[in-house]
């Protein structure tokens, strides 16, 4: 079941488009903002609300990389792995993160605190390497600063 809040937010988006299907990406992002990810049940509920089939909606969901069809931890760490960050040493940052958090790229920490995911260029190439935790961009990251950055996310 979509919550009243989710339904309201989706309803607001409906006013911006001439047809229901056009809202489906917004709808999935809304649900994801509330729940961290989009479950099979959420796919069913959104599809019903927007008069789409589950196959239609999941076809869209699986196309886009920011729609997560698997659960994530409390905080999602997106590490940019694109060219400028690569030149500036994002691989070292990634390895550091993996070691420190005891998980691999794509995985979550045992305490359910962090999920580590790769991301394409975050548009912060002049301040590479960059990473994004939840909605916050962190730039000029290096091995030494990681600890401090992670501290802020409980």
């Amino acid at each position: 079941m979509l919550t009243a809040e989710e339904q309201k937010e989706i309803g607001e988006e409906l006013a911006h488009y001439p047809c229901k299907q056009a809202v489906c990406i917004d709808a999935m992002l809304i649900v994801q903002r509330h729940r961290g990810w989009v479950s099979d049940d959420a796919i069913r509920d959104i599809a019903e609300m927007l008069e789409m089939s589950t196959a239609d909606l999941d076809g869209v969901a699986t196309f886009y990389n920011l729609i997560r069809r698997k659960p994530v931890a409390r905080h999602v760490v997106l590490i940019c792995d694109s060219v400028s960050c690569w030149i500036m040493g994002c691989e070292r940052v990634r390895d550091q993160l993996c070691t420190r958090l005891g998980t691999t790229l794509g995985g979550s920490t045992a305490d359910g605190r962090f999920t580590l995911l790769p991301i394409v260029c975050l548009g912060a190439c002049d301040r590479a390497p960059a990473l994004m935790i939840d909605n916050n961009l962190h730039t000029n990251v290096d091995e030494h600063r990681i600890g401090g950055i992670l501290e802020a996310y409980k």
Binding site: D40, I43, S53, T54, A55, D56, D58, G59, T62, F63
Partner: peptide
Amino acid sequence: HDLNAFRLRDVVYFGRF
């Protein structure tokens, strides 16, 4: 309505939900 393409690049999957 119940058959679709999922995912992208060289891993497009044609099937049901």
